[in-house]
């Protein structure tokens, strides 16, 4: 009884407290993003003033204000107007990411479907292989891939980055789990109706698995949008670089432009993310839940 009451009181107070804590945490978590945004809208001088100690040029501690003292478009303008390099890289990133996405969809979805809904000999092994491969850091395969790509003459082209990523097993993993959740009954019904496997796949599987596909797609996009190691290793020509390599080139001396660039890089990802948040949740959820 007391326990109940305590629990209830605790619950009520607790809920409020919990809520507060959560909000606080949320804020902390969002802090870096806010930082980037405010930084992008600060003038360089202010950034230097605030971040001087970090840049090494001043004494004392760095400071930061949520709202910049002198909001300015300087950095953004500098980035957007005066650095066509940024845009080159931006579109490179776009190209790469979309290509990877397309590829992953084209190849991955059927693979996930096959693994999820069918059984065949060696499936277990394949799944194991896929899993292991998924968990392998890139560096392991970096060299051999380099050699293969070089042999294919694909080095220093975008394909060198795209192709290996297309055949990443991660999307398959995610989608597999989702496809797993599709009720067999529906498929049976379709099969009875005389639909071929492919047909079933296309008309039922995909639509039903859309959340999974979308979330996998989003995750995949985010992943490729953030790719750093592969482009760095496989792309030598600066003109081919994706945006993710733009920022490392900027030191804190050009913090303003760095923040602006970060913001610019952030926005598409964020937008897409917001677009697909629901699906993401669903997809993740589906992945988590075992049928």
């Amino acid at each position: 009884m007391g326990r109940h009451l305590a629990g209830k009181v605790f619950g009520k107070c607790g809920k409020g407290a919990v809520w507060l804590v959560l909000v606080l945490m949320a804020v902390i978590v969002c802090f870096p993003v806010a930082f980037v945004v405010s930084g992008a809208f600060s003038a360089q001088w202010e950034l230097e003033q605030n971040l001087g100690p970090v840049l090494g040029s001043a004494e004392g501690m760095a400071r930061w204000s949520l709202l910049p003292l002198a909001p300015a478009f300087q950095s953004l303008v500098e980035l957007l107007m005066d650095s066509p390099q940024f845009f080159v890289m931006f579109w490179n990133s776009v190209k790469i990411s979309l290509s990877i996405l397309a590829g992953q969809m084209i190849f991955g979805i059927p693979a996930a479907w096959g693994l999820a809904r069918f059984s065949f000999p060696g499936k277990g092994i394949v799944q194991m292989i896929y899993l292991v491969l998924m968990l392998m850091p890139f560096q392991v395969l970096m060299l051999p891939e380099y050699i293969i790509l070089n042999g294919m003459g694909l080095l220093d082209t975008h394909l060198a980055v795209i192709l290996p990523a297309v055949f990443s097993t991660f999307p398959v993993f995610i989608m597999q789990r989702f496809f797993h959740g599709v009720p067999e009954a529906v498929l049976e019904a379709a099969r009875i109706d005389g639909a071929g496997n492919f047909q079933i796949f296309c008309s039922i599987g995909v639509p039903l698995g859309l959340p999974g596909i979308l979330s996998s797609g989003l995750l995949g996009f985010l992943e490729s949008w953030n790719m750093i190691e592969q482009p760095q290793t496989f792309l030598k020509t600066k003109a081919l670089w994706p945006l993710s390599l733009f920022l490392p080139e900027i030191g804190l001396e050009e913090a303003g432009m760095g923040f602006a660039a970060s913001l610019m890089m952030l926005v598409p990802a964020l937008l897409l993310f917001l677009c697909g948040q629901e699906y993401l949740e669903q997809g993740i959820a589906a992945a988590a839940v075992k049928e």
């Binding site: 957007l80 107007m81 005066d82 650095s83 066509p84 940024f86 845009f87 931006f90 579109w91």
Partner: peptide, 8 residues
Amino acid sequence: FTVLSRAS
């Protein structure tokens, strides 16, 4: 902006 920046 891509276009603009290139022009500039």
